[in-house]
């Protein structure tokens, strides 16, 4: 039982980790948080539904379209929120992103709301699950794809931040926006890319998640919350921390559900967030402090 639980906890957790990745990218580069991330994740799911089911193209076609839509939404969000993207306006920005979250959710409902209540997106790959150790571990291919996608995204991000100019710019803007501006780093470009990247990774997470669940317009918020929890557990500023935080959360949930009570499952995420915030304000894996006076 334990091995089966762990396997599905890890798969779910990697998904939370992907959302957390989006949270961390924006937090790192722009010191900002975006409530509409979860709804863009849902949008990713709905767009892949439209491409795969409604238009009848394969999942391979869905991914680029999901990315393009997310790019579009990202640039639009940036243009809209640009006046608020500095340190003075953190709370105002947060409030505005709540508005953005409503906008995205409302738009999803307007487009797909009348076609049914819940949509199923066919699996990205089909085939029998991988059975290891005499059935002690059963890994459905979808979980494997989900996990693989998450790991790939993580690797891409790590490379991006370490080796590309834009990535380095982003890091320096996050560390000290004023100094970055003085040395001539294009702050606007950095903030814009951070917003776009964070939404693209969320939409891709939605694309990966969609086949494993049923999609509906309201799915975004609770996923964002879990992703956020993962980011907090991981220390908010660390990319690997975000993914490990996600896995930790996913595993905790499934273990609580399996060994304590399935009623306590929903609670475990919130307890974890609270504990992490109060006792590990720098996250379990360090990172910059964001403590106040």
């Amino acid at each position: 039982m334990l091995s089966v639980l762990l396997a599905s906890g890890v798969a779910n957790g990697l998904l939370y980790g992907l959302v957390a990745l989006g949270v961390v990218v924006l937090a790192k580069a722009a010191n900002a948080f975006n409530f509409s991330q979860g709804d863009v994740m849902a949008l990713g799911g709905f767009v892949s539904y439209a491409v795969i089911v409604t238009m009848g193209y394969g999942s391979v076609a869905a991914l680029p379209i999901v990315v393009i839509v997310a790019l579009f939404v990202g640039v639009l969000s940036y243009l809209l929120l640009r006046p608020l993207m500095d340190a003075q306006h953190a709370v105002a920005l947060l409030t505005a992103t709540i508005g953005l979250s409503f906008l995205v959710k409302g738009t999803i409902r307007l487009i797909w709301g009348r076609q049914g209540d819940y949509f199923a997106v066919p699996p990205l790959v089909s085939g029998p699950p991988i059975i290891l150790f005499d059935g002690a571990v059963i890994i459905p291919l979808q979980h494997l794809v989900m996990s693989g996608g998450a790991v790939l995204m993580l690797a891409l991000f790590a490379l991006f931040f370490r080796f590309t100019r834009l990535g380095l710019f982003m890091r320096s803007v996050a560390d000290n926006p004023r100094a970055a501006r003085i040395v001539g780093i294009p702050t606007e470009l950095v903030l814009c890319s951070a917003m776009v990247l964070s939404l693209v990774v969320s939409a891709v997470a939605g694309f990966l998640l969609a086949p494993a669940t049923l999609i509906f317009p309201d799915m975004g918020f609770s996923l964002f919350l879990k992703g956020f929890a993962a980011a907090i557990i991981g220390g908010m500023m660390s990319l690997p921390g975000a993914v490990i935080g996600g896995v930790l959360l996913g595993v905790t949930e499934v273990l609580v559900s399996g060994y304590i009570s399935s009623t306590a499952q929903e609670l475990s995420a919130f307890v974890l967030i609270f504990v992490a915030l109060i006792f590990f304000p720098r996250g379990l894996f360090g990172g910059r402090s964001s403590r106040s006076v």
Binding site: V91, F270, I273, F274, S290, R291, S292
Partner: peptide
């Protein structure tokens, strides 16, 4: 108590977790 240690978004998320727990 959390507000003494946290500020901004972290406080917001902590209170959100409390709110969800109360709802539960």
């Amino acid at each position: 108590l959390p507000a003494l240690r946290l500020s901004g978004i972290h406080l917001a998320i902590a209170t959100l977790a409390v709110a969800q727990a109360v709802h539960w």
